[in-house]
Design a protein around this nucleic acid. Sequence first.
DNA 1: TCCAGAGATGAATCCACCC
DNA 2: GGGGTGGATTCATCTCTGG
Lengths: 404, 404
Amino acid sequence: MSIFCGDCKEILPNIEAESVDMIYLDPPFFTQKTHNLKTRDNAQNYHFEDSWESAEHYTIYMKSRIKECHRVLKKDGNIFLHCDKNASHYLRLILDEIFGSKNFRNEIIWHYKRWSSNKSALQSQHQVIYFYGKTKASKFNTLYTDYSATTNIDQILQERTRDEHGKSKYKTDSGGNIVWAKEKKGVPLGDVWEIPYLNPKAHERVGYPTQKPVLLLERIIEISTNVGDIVLDPFCGSGTTLVAAKLLNRRFVGIDISSDAVNIATSRTENPIKTTSILLEKGKNCYLTKTPTESKILASLEAIPVQRNAGIDGFLTMQQGRQIPIKIQKQEESLQEAKQKLMQAAKKRNYPYMVLIRTHNSLQNQLEWFSFSGNATIFVVDSLELSVSNWFVGLENLAKVAQM
Amino acid sequence: MSIFCGDCKEILPNIEAESVDMIYLDPPFFTQKTHNLKTRDNAQNYHFEDSWESAEHYTIYMKSRIKECHRVLKKDGNIFLHCDKNASHYLRLILDEIFGSKNFRNEIIWHYKRWSSNKSALQSQHQVIYFYGKTKASKFNTLYTDYSATTNIDQILQERTRDEHGKSKYKTDSGGNIVWAKEKKGVPLGDVWEIPYLNPKAHERVGYPTQKPVLLLERIIEISTNVGDIVLDPFCGSGTTLVAAKLLNRRFVGIDISSDAVNIATSRTENPIKTTSILLEKGKNCYLTKTPTESKILASLEAIPVQRNAGIDGFLTMQQGRQIPIKIQKQEESLQEAKQKLMQAAKKRNYPYMVLIRTHNSLQNQLEWFSFSGNATIFVVDSLELSVSNWFVGLENLAKVAQM
DNA sequence: TCCAGAGATGAATCCACCC
DNA sequence: GGGGTGGATTCATCTCTGG
């Protein structure tokens, strides 16, 4: 487990041919910019050049290094090349040439959500990783993911068969009962990976630019290597690949031209930190707390939904210059309780006005509808559904009275 | 609105230069395994000797056609090229050459989930669409999506400033109170679009908007064109692009080499609703005859929308066994007019109850809210938006009175 | 007209603190 | 304490200005 400082073009030739099981490269992206980034305490300034005379120069630079990668890779080894939109097509051509288009496995899309800026095009929310094997016999471990929430798990667990026309259908026994399939492991991993971008506040951050999440590298290592295999990263930067390799009990070799990077990578591998992503662990759905009815009410008001707040369900967009919180009364809440929660959530904010949507009848009478409390004004309004159903109840009562 | 039969290489030269606002191409794809070049509907089949040869041939084939596309595109026009994973890098090189790498806008990832099958690689679950403008001044309409569930909305509604070190902070006024940011519309749309091939639930709920690849084309058309613009699809196949263009009130031109395809596309665009293969578009289309506000009101009531009826916008589903028509007052209608249209539409049906949603204030006073006419009872209820905005108007009037 | 560098931007996360 | 919510921080940004 060694980390070398230097240009990988110089270092790779010292590595024995066909000695490495997997290579992950995260080369310069051809952004045509020089990048500067300061650490949080302004103590360090990391600087790297990524501007090139032309695409041809970039291609020559990359080709010589990828050729060396091909040489050191075992016959059943794999290579992953991390690109962004600027140069992916040039890099893919190089890979096709050196590894052969037949050994192309996947175009992996790393999809993330990130803080945005006001761009006059679509927000960039992905990067591309090309996955090639050295030969057709290259290693591959299938990983399984959980079934997505929308999948009907009952159906998957049924055994399938084919009818007389060759169409697939679900199997039933002679009595017409469903035949259950043997246990499934989940859905095989796809080529679009939704992994959160390394969080601004994550402990995992070391302050070095372009740091990748450990989770991303873990996945790459898991699908392409086994325990004890050797992982090589010729542009290792702050050493995320090496950390992931160590956490998964693989051996690793790193190379970087910056001595700062090598220092950081060395100390990181000695004391690996991985941030657990709550978002990934629990899934997006645990944050999505709105019922369909609530979502529809917010949509009909063109309000911005708020997910992680017990008292506020959304903000009105219609009243310019004023932020107006909305709360929708929950099924189990009395109007009084709903109001209290809204007041509590708004306590420190000093909102001049608030809106509370009443969704069901409670014992409180209509006098409560306009409530004044301190400086804040809460407007209580019935949801459309409540208005309409109240009307019907009223009609039925009328009818009863008439019968009497 | 014309659809031509023939090779677009022959047809495009007949189209005037700089006359088209947007071009979407879904060209034949290129597989090196079979050394075949096929159109997506398998109508055409071109053979090549070997993969290297075919890549070159493919490039020549596509380049001549994309050059013509460039010619017919307006200066503020856009082009979208739908690629499959085997040829995307060649196509990107062609686009860089003809449109210029500076006019590259986005690499759009269309991400979908598919039924799994075991093989020795990751499941392929995406396709790539390249988005170029003809010039830097090309049109672009920003679409907005919801905030991430984990976003702290309270915070981003605050204005920000910088401290003496240039680090950014949230602004407070001299009294330590929060300064609110300008109004938010949501998060700008990103470049990874999760759109299912077909939404299975749509089968169950006809009359409801469905997500399917028409949505893909609609998004492309919406971000790159305005109403009345001309959309061109040189490989139009069964005409999904053209149908989407028509539904969004854009003009369209289609070309396809297969006469079968042209026939299907023609009949689909002439009568998009009758075509059985797009049964699901019926529901979608139903909403398209409604304004977004009307759609949202119907959705929030979980009502079934009705199209092509001047008097009835939908039916309530909540009151069992009774058909209860709903009308939503239109912008230009007085409450009286709206009521008359509803009565007129309901004349022969003998509905016992009807609901009329009031969306704006008219001269009529509140006494009109309960109107009885013949045997039918119309219940007039204010939309949530109207209720809330009336409340604000009331407050402002109060303030004025207080000042006097 | 183009390039470089400064300055504005803005939402997404985990963290830390607060009840 | 532990569940919830305000806060800090970012940027293989993006735009605009000035030479």
